[in-house]
Amino acid sequence: MPASESYPDDLLYHPEHDWARIEGDEATLGVTWFAQDALGELVHYEAPDVGSTVTRGSSYGEVESVKAVSDLISPLSGEVLEVNEKVVDAPETVNEDPYGEGWLIRIRLSSPDEREQLLSLDDYRKVLAEA
């Protein structure tokens, strides 16, 4: 069952429709409701390796629906601590719960200051209004 539209206000956003939840020097990353809605039901998650490095603004993986594929753009830089295996096994989890069960990776931040460059919910809503 796809989730209904929502954008939590405790997250930081990237204009490529990715979100980050920062806790200390770690962050959990995922894609927004808008991104999963645009793609449709996901059928594949190409995840990075645990231990690999992700760079702000660069792709760390891919998600695919039947007729579309999208790069996952990392909003922050760091080292991959964990990949959400539930999404690897059942990619539709992202459609069902994009901010909860459908998270994609957890990273240890290498440049915590980068959070200053992310969007607040209000700023992200402006991006959505133009999309």
Partner: peptide, 12 residues
């Protein structure tokens, strides 16, 4: 598995 293909993935 059409997302491998040129009409979706284009240059990738």
């Amino acid at each position: 598995l059409q997302t491998r293909e040129q009409h979706i993935r284009r240059e990738k």
